[in-house]
């Protein structure tokens, strides 16, 4: 479903992605971790071409992202993305945050979009906040709304960029629960996170990045107990001793 083939990306002189290659099947949940600045966000943002690459090839759902003829907007509509800082539209009520794109992009009627949106809000456990503004919600609630907003487009792939790292500990759980449910329903997910409990519970694979390279790409059991690369072991010992 998602294939990276020797992907290279530069920010001016800075080489941020170095020969990144991997393949993700439909229904797979992949957790990406690594030190700060290792290129995790950049890699994730390449999947829906928020960032363009300089060399290599990315194919998502059979669409080559580099090909000038590819309909990127159409592809993006099928890839949901959740950001660290939620990025909800502050001028719109929760419900309107959810129905904007389905109406404008898919041409769904307001009634149908509202119906779907209310079901999704129920699913993430905040249907009672449908008419609130984002600023009236807690961080955890905002992030759940952001997940529901992405799901409202009925995506085939969901991308998460550190969805819980701006949240207080008690709110992290409510967001992770929603993500676990989603994983169990068979959604294809790439999740950049340092929540190793989440990785253990639902990830099929863990990708570890350092300085723009994929260092490890393993099943969680293997990654946690017998990571081959010393950088991965150092990273793990740091992050696990934190918890």
């Amino acid at each position: 479903m998602i294939t990276f083939d020797k992907v290279n990306k530069y920010f001016n002189q800075l080489h941020v992605l170095k020969d990144v290659s991997f393949h993700i099947e439909a229904g797979e949940v992949v957790v990406v971790c690594g030190p700060s600045g290792s290129g995790k966000s950049t890699m994730l943002r390449c999947v829906n071409r928020l960032e363009k690459i300089d060399r290599g090839e990315i194919v998502v759902k059979g669409v080559n992202l580099n090909a000038p003829t590819s309909d990127i907007a159409k592809l993006r509509a099928e890839i949901g993305m959740v950001f660290q800082h939620f990025n909800l539209y502050p001028h719109l009520r929760v419900l309107d945050n959810l129905i904007l794109a389905p109406i404008k992009v898919r041409g769904v009627s307001r009634e149908v979009a509202t119906d779907t949106a209310m079901k999704l809000l129920a699913k993430v456990g905040i249907q009672e906040k449908a008419s609130a503004y984002p600023s009236q919600l807690s961080g955890g609630q905002q992030q759940r709304v952001a997940i529901a907003r992405a799901l409202a487009m009925q995506p085939k792939i969901m991308l998460f960029d550190e969805p819980t790292s701006a949240l207080d500990p008690e709110m992290i759980r409510e967001v992770l629960e929603v993500m676990v449910d989603l994983a169990n329903e068979g959604m294809t997910m790439i999740v950049v996170t340092h929540e190793m409990g989440f990785a253990r519970r639902v990830a099929h694979r863990v990708i570890f990045m350092d300085e723009g390279r994929v260092i490890e790409d393993e099943k969680p059991e293997v990654f946690f107990s017998q990571a081959k690369d010393p950088r991965a072991r150092v990273f793990l010992s740091k992050i696990l001793s934190h918890i």
Binding site: L50, A73, L75, M81, N87, L88, Y89, A101
Partner: peptide
């Protein structure tokens, strides 16, 4: 960016 990712 949030809007772009929805294909708008």
């Amino acid at each position: 960016e949030a809007a772009e990712t929805t294909g708008m």
